[in-house]
């Protein structure tokens, strides 16, 4: 794939935010700071005609070999992949999110479809998206403790879901409940 020319434009427009850029398997990737991510995304959408958000996910860098001992990497990163349906170019943005300030600006104002993806990142990785309209857990139960995709979270989990026992009791209780007994109770 030929160079798309977007990386130099990004470097010129946001010199403080772009940390590093490279190409791997023919895909353009840019490492950025998280501070102006909303501006960068809107620049990519409006100036570079990248209208399609392919995916958005979060990565835990704590055990990543290439990240260990390097200043430009933080504990987490949020990865955005954009694609232009007209020019057929794509670019990946890896915004670094530190552990002590685990939040990043939401891009739901630009792509309403990012709503669920950001909720998923919050749920599984614990990254807070500021100015997100409805940031709740999405895949795990709402009262779940911990964020499963973090590297320190064990594969088999940290015990049963708190609501499980009550749910089990309730289902046993409801087993004895039928139409006739409800009629009796009302008399």
């Amino acid at each position: 794939m030929e160079s798309t020319g977007i990386i130099p434009r990004l470097e010129v427009s946001y010199p403080d935010d772009v940390l590093h850029s490279y190409q791997y398997c023919g895909q353009d990737v840019v490492l950025t700071r998280k501070k102006h991510i909303l501006d960068i995304c809107s620049f990519i959408r409006d100036q570079c005609a990248m209208n399609h958000l392919m995916f958005l996910c979060a990565v835990d860098n704590s055990r990543r070999k290439e990240a260990i001992g390097k200043n430009e990497y933080e504990r987490f990163e949020v990865v955005y992949q954009f694609y232009s349906m007209t020019t057929k170019h794509s670019i990946r943005i890896r915004a670094q999110v530190p552990d002590d300030d685990c939040s990043i600006e939401s891009i739901t104002s630009l792509w309403p479809g990012a709503d669920c993806l950001e909720r998923e990142c919050f749920d599984l990785m614990g990254i807070h998206f500021s100015s997100h309209p409805d940031l709740r857990r999405i895949l795990m139960p709402e009262d779940w403790k911990g964020h499963p995709l973090r590297k320190e979270y064990p594969l088999r989990g940290i015990g049963e879901w708190a609501g499980y026992e009550t749910l089990k009791e309730k289902s046993l209780e409801l087993r004895t409940f039928d139409y006739r007994s409800s009629q009796k109770g009302n008399e």
Binding site: N51, H52, M85, L110, W111, G113, A114
Partner: peptide
Amino acid sequence: GADEAVGLCL
């Protein structure tokens, strides 16, 4: 609409 569908990531 077309633009809305792209924005919604359909």
